[in-house]
Simulated assay, not measured.
Amino acid sequence: MRKNSIKNTRINGEVQRELGRIISREIKDPRISSLTSVVAVEVAPDLKSCKAYISVLGDEAAQKATLEGLNSAMGFIRKELAHSVNLRNTPAITFIMDQSIEYGVNMSKMISEVNKDLKEEDEDEELS
């Protein structure tokens, strides 16, 4: 059982790397944002299906357009994946929008604003 999970982890990493390469370099669809990254991949143990979590930096319209572009390029993506990753079956890919990077960026902005406000308050207290 343990060996299977190690193998599955290796496959997930390989598929994630290749999907990232295919999306950023091979697909020419203008709907797909250049700021698209593959955050995580979960390939089922039977290799028949795969969930690809993607992140798109941009507004909701850019995210929706990227998802549409990826779904329309599905046949091409699977063909490229079959060539580059040597698996018994090429999994059917489901793209899922992942908001974690955008969430992190927003949290960083909020923390920076709070720190700036605190620094300004400290400077005001020193002056009075």
Rank of each mutant, 00 (worst) to 15 (best):
residue 102 E to D: 14
residue 68 E to V: 14
residue 108 S to N: 10
residue 99 Q to M: 13
residue 6 I to F: 02
residue 64 K to N: 03
residue 89 N to H: 15
residue 128 S to Q: 12
residue 75 G to F: 07
residue 85 V to S: 04
residue 42 E to V: 08
residue 49 S to T: 11
residue 29 D to E: 08
residue 125 E to I: 14
residue 103 Y to G: 10
residue 34 S to A: 00
residue 128 S to H: 11
residue 42 E to I: 04
residue 10 R to I: 00
residue 41 V to Q: 02
residue 101 I to T: 03
residue 52 A to T: 01
residue 46 D to A: 10
residue 82 A to Q: 08
residue 100 S to I: 10
residue 106 N to E: 10
residue 46 D to M: 11
residue 120 E to S: 14
residue 104 G to Y: 07
residue 15 V to F: 13
residue 125 E to R: 12
residue 94 T to Q: 10
residue 16 Q to W: 05
residue 97 M to H: 13
residue 19 L to H: 07
residue 115 N to M: 14
residue 59 D to Q: 12
residue 6 I to N: 01
residue 89 N to I: 14
residue 106 N to K: 15
residue 28 K to R: 09
residue 35 L to C: 07
residue 115 N to L: 14
residue 3 K to G: 06
residue 27 I to S: 10
residue 114 V to S: 05
residue 103 Y to E: 15
residue 126 E to W: 02
residue 20 G to R: 03
residue 100 S to D: 05
residue 74 M to G: 05
residue 5 S to P: 06
residue 107 M to E: 09
residue 68 E to F: 07
residue 31 R to P: 01
residue 53 Y to K: 08
residue 45 P to Y: 00
residue 75 G to I: 03
residue 113 E to N: 14
residue 16 Q to M: 14
residue 43 V to R: 06
residue 14 E to F: 08
residue 94 T to Y: 11
residue 43 V to E: 02
residue 39 V to S: 05
residue 43 V to D: 04
residue 103 Y to M: 14
residue 80 E to I: 05
residue 101 I to E: 03
residue 62 A to G: 02
residue 47 L to P: 15
residue 42 E to W: 03
residue 9 T to E: 04
residue 120 E to G: 09
residue 36 T to H: 03
residue 127 L to R: 12
residue 75 G to D: 06
residue 74 M to W: 02
residue 94 T to I: 08
residue 35 L to A: 12
residue 75 G to Q: 08
residue 65 A to R: 13
residue 37 S to L: 12
residue 29 D to S: 10
residue 85 V to T: 11
residue 11 I to H: 15
residue 102 E to N: 15
residue 13 G to I: 04
residue 87 L to F: 00
residue 91 P to Q: 04
residue 41 V to K: 02
residue 35 L to T: 08
residue 97 M to C: 08
residue 30 P to E: 14
residue 22 I to W: 02
residue 8 N to K: 10
residue 111 I to H: 02
residue 95 F to I: 05
residue 110 M to A: 15
residue 122 D to R: 07
residue 42 E to Q: 12
